[in-house]
């Protein structure tokens, strides 16, 4: 089973079980599978499978954060990871990107094993990662920030999808507002047209209006390019409204995985982990 339930009461949630297992193929028979065969994935073979994490144990130094987590995400889908502070949701993305110490378990992306690939090479596997904070180089201008990823000549082209930033092209990134900075960070991670995009709390510390703009951009990406998007979110309502599948983490374990609507219906889980008062 892909979902590991730490809750004793989990058996009462058929919806969760169904979605937590091998998810039903709802991608309407898409055929443009990734170039590499995901056949190596074994049991959960699925032509749309973008990320497959198995029994992942990881942390920082001696401090273990995730205690054996299974996770999967599909192309053309938005998968959200929610949970309280310290539940390990950001660590999950960091593990995917080689930013924390993996002790055991495996991580596959588009059918290729990336468990021990060094961080700077992961981009080459078609995955991008946008960190929660410090996701642009503060001392560099916008143009320089983009040039780091594209080379100097193509820096301006990278802004094609972000015309809002063009006026600030030669300003240091430190002078940008929070929302503009997030847009710049997005522009940077999108340069290489990744198939899998990881976003760590992209709307944190943004005004609701700006948060909507960012989420809108992410949804557009998903709709246009049939990407796999993994979204870590603090704002649960935001996340659940916009995703196709959700993972709920608590203390480094998956306590729910599956349909977002079912999670919201589950008063027990919602009140316990999401801080929503049961009606």
């Amino acid at each position: 089973m892909a979902s590991r339930n730490a809750l004793g009461s989990s058996g009462e949630k058929p919806g969760a079980e169904r979605h937590g297992g091998a998810p039903l193929d709802t991608a309407h028979g898409k055929t443009d599978a990734p170039a590499t065969s995901p056949a190596a994935q074994g049991g959960n073979s699925n032509s749309n499978r973008a990320i497959e994490i198995k029994d992942l144990v990881c942390g920082y130094g001696k401090n273990q954060v995730l205690h054996g987590v299974d996770f999967s995400a599909d192309l053309s889908k938005i998968t959200a990871i929610v949970g309280s502070n310290g539940s390990g949701k950001s660590t999950m993305l960091k593990a995917l990107f080689g930013l924390c110490d993996v002790k055991s378990g495996s991580i596959h992306a588009l059918g290729r094993d990336i468990t021990h690939v060094p961080t700077h090479s992961i981009l080459g596997y078609g995955i991008s990662y946008m960190a929660q904070r410090k996701n642009v180089f503060q001392d560099l201008t916008l143009r320089e920030n983009l040039a780091v990823v594209t080379g100097l000549r193509n820096a301006e082209q990278a802004m094609d999808h972000f015309p809002e930033l063009l006026p600030f092209l030669d300003r240091p990134a430190v002078t940008l507002s929070g929302g503009q900075r997030q847009l710049l960070a997005m522009a940077m991670v999108l340069v290489h047209k990744p198939r899998i995009m990881l976003f760590d709390e992209p709307t944190a510390a943004l005004s609701p209006k700006n948060a909507d703009i960012i989420i809108g951009k992410i949804k557009d990406l998903n709709a246009q390019h049939e990407n796999c998007i993994v979204l870590v979110e603090q704002n649960v309502k935001h996340a659940l409204r916009n995703c196709d599948k959700v993972y709920l983490l608590a203390s480094g374990n998956v306590v729910y995985s599956g349909d977002p609507a079912t999670l919201l219906d589950d008063k027990d889980l919602a009140s316990k982990y999401l801080g929503m008062t049961p009606q």
């Binding site: 700077h120 180089f137 940077m188």
Partner: peptide, 27 residues
Amino acid sequence: LYRTSFGMSMRGAIENESLAQTLGINT
């Protein structure tokens, strides 16, 4: 440092090594 993308990567890597790595720079 200011006129080549290698130099910009270098400044970036000095400022924030892990960000540079996630952007594919071999720090």
